[in-house]
Design a protein around this nucleic acid. Structure first.
Length: 481
RNA sequence: GGAGGCGUAGCUCAGUUGGCUAGAGCAACGGCCUUUUAAGCCGUGGGUCCUGGGUUCGAGUCCCAGCGCCUUCACCA
């Protein structure tokens, strides 16, 4: 892709670069200060005063040369504005204007008026070529459609497909809103290690790497949880982190090897507090986008109006699988018909396979699934009146797991025991016990609620993007060669 | 990793049952045009049909292998 030979298009533009230089003009002009956004310029038009002088800059996305007059549609990241270049007004710069192409970046200033057909237009008196594009942009009407190239050359995707720019503006705004909501509630943002010698806090295969100077193997983190809880021990009562996790698993429309999570912990809270918080955060994001609390996603409509359903794991299991969670014999029987390799699995794991198979995709409108089998929850406090059940919820929207939260386990003895029995199940893996984490609990961690939710998936929902690659600027791709 | 689909000009796409020199629009090049709106009109050029094999008188089209992407299943959030 980088070594494609120069074709007629590139050659034609390189010839123009030479001609522009011969005119004494730098085809890669420098600063063009004091510009206004294209959308603001159009907004500013005043029919009573067509003498207003405005300055704008952007990329040429449409080019209409009608002889001694050229109309150009400039686009910046706020919108488009038309500029009109005439031989009369431009003088010496007219020769440069005649050498412009789609994709070039220019600055222009002049009075703001309207054309006969009513389009707001800058009648340019001051003109500067800021960057000559030497390869042509994609087709002006359809933009860049080739999915592979859209991801590999996201820069082209962004400037030629405004809806893609919108998605990423939305992503930024969503993260910004979450940050400010949490900060307003007294949470402090922290950063914890991405490179860990023990990849803990979740069940997933990690990426491994090596530190040369320390001659030490390291893992990219699969979760920040164990470090954030150390901060609870340290006395940071409300903390959150919005950052990348890395999981060495398959890639799909809902999975990218690196993805962004928001994890937060609140001392003296529990999973009920986390449920309220999760619902509040997402509803606020929906309010910013919808007056009806409904948003489209993947061809259907999601109803975010609260209060959201809170259903127990056992209830949903019975409803959709068709047998009680306690009926192990029946559960294994169903698992066999689905060709799930259930023989090596613990009872709760087999049941969870069925839960994922039968229940998850039924949870379209936001639903909290609460009270998980304790066996599945290594880091979670158990219910006082029923130690078989953990105080955990997962929250689903559109069949996707969006959040996972629990009342944090702060009993070091149970924690150590849970780690040990977890390790027994995966003897041949790289999993290790995080002994320092247990030590931290021994010093005393306040009871707390903890919540993690996937930012990428949330952005998918808020922007009606059915594929996670549409909300990650540079998704994982195989190299071209 | 399994299954299915896709890959044609710079871009967006057609291409029938295997049949003559592979087409269109945009874009490019030359010309005309001072109020265009995906500007218009006249003319010209532009192809490793993803790559490599094979079948055939003849392959963009059929077969095999490979590469990349998309979807789906598995793993996972």
């Amino acid at each position: 892709m980088s070594n494609t030979p120069i074709n007629e298009y590139e050659q034609a533009r390189l010839d123009k670069v030479t001609k522009i230089r011969e005119l004494g003009v730098d085809p890669y002009g420098g600063r063009y200060p004091d510009t206004e956004a294209a959308s603001a310029i159009v907004e500013k038009y005043d029919p009573e005063n067509e003498e207003q002088v405005v300055r704008g800059a952007g990329r040429i996305v449409l080019f209409r040369d009608i002889g001694r007059l050229i109309f150009i549609t400039l686009r910046d990241w706020t919108g488009t504005v038309q500029i009109g270049l005439s031989k009369k007004l431009l003088g010496d710069d007219w020769a440069v204007a005649k050498l412009l192409d789609l994709g070039d970046i220019v600055g222009a200033a002049g009075s703001l008026g309207k054309t006969n057909t009513g389009e707001v237009t800058i009648w340019v008196t001051d003109f500067k070529l800021l960057c000559k594009a030497t390869v042509p942009p994609p087709e002006k009407f359809h933009g860049l459609q080739d999915v592979e190239r859209r991801y590999r050359q996201r820069y082209v995707d962004l400037f030629s497909n405004p809806e893609v720019m919108d998605t990423f503006k939305n992503r930024s705004q969503i993260i910004q809103s979450i940050r400010s909501m949490l900060q307003d509630k007294g949470f402090m943002e922290v950063e914890t290690p991405m490179m860990q010698s023990i990849a803990g806090g979740a069940a997933a295969r990690p990426f491994s790497t090596h530190h040369n100077a320390l001659d030490m193997d390291l893992f990219l983190r699969i979760a920040p949880e164990l470090y954030l809880k150390r901060l609870l021990v340290g006395g940071m009562d409300k903390v959150f982190e919005i950052n990348r996790n890395f999981r060495n698993e398959g890639i799909s429309t809902r999975h990218n090897p690196e993805f962004t999570m928001c994890e937060l912990y609140q001392a003296y809270g529990d999973y009920n507090v986390m449920m309220d918080l999760m619902e509040e955060i997402i509803c606020e994001l929906v309010v910013q986008r919808s007056s009806t609390m409904r948003l489209p996603f993947d061809g259907r409509e999601i109803d975010y109006s609260g209060p959201w359903a809170r259903r127990t794991y056992a209830d949903l299991f019975a409803e959709h699988v068709g047998c009680e969670i306690s009926d192990i014999a029946r559960i294994r029987e169903i698992a066999r018909t689905l060709e799930i390799g259930e023989k090596q699995m613990a009872d709760a794991v087999v049941a969870n396979e069925l839960f994922e198979h039968f229940v998850e995709d039924k949870l379209v409108d936001p639903t909290f699934v609460i009270d998980y089998p304790a066996e599945l929850c290594v880091l979670t406090r158990r219910k006082v009146d029923n130690p078989e059940i953990a105080e955990r919820f997962e929250m689903y929207i559109a069949g996707m797991e969006i959040a996972n939260a629990y009342t944090e386990l702060n009993d070091p003895a149970i924690q150590e025991e849970n780690f040990r029995s977890q390790l027994k199940g995966q003897e041949e893996t790289e999993a290790q016990m995080d002994e320092d984490f247990v030590m931290a609990l021994k010093y005393g961690m306040p009871p707390a609620g903890g919540l993690g939710f996937g930012i990428d998936r949330l952005v998918m929902l808020m922007t009606d993007s059915p594929c996670i690659r549409e909300v990650i600027l540079f998704p994982m791709m195989r190299p071209v060669d």
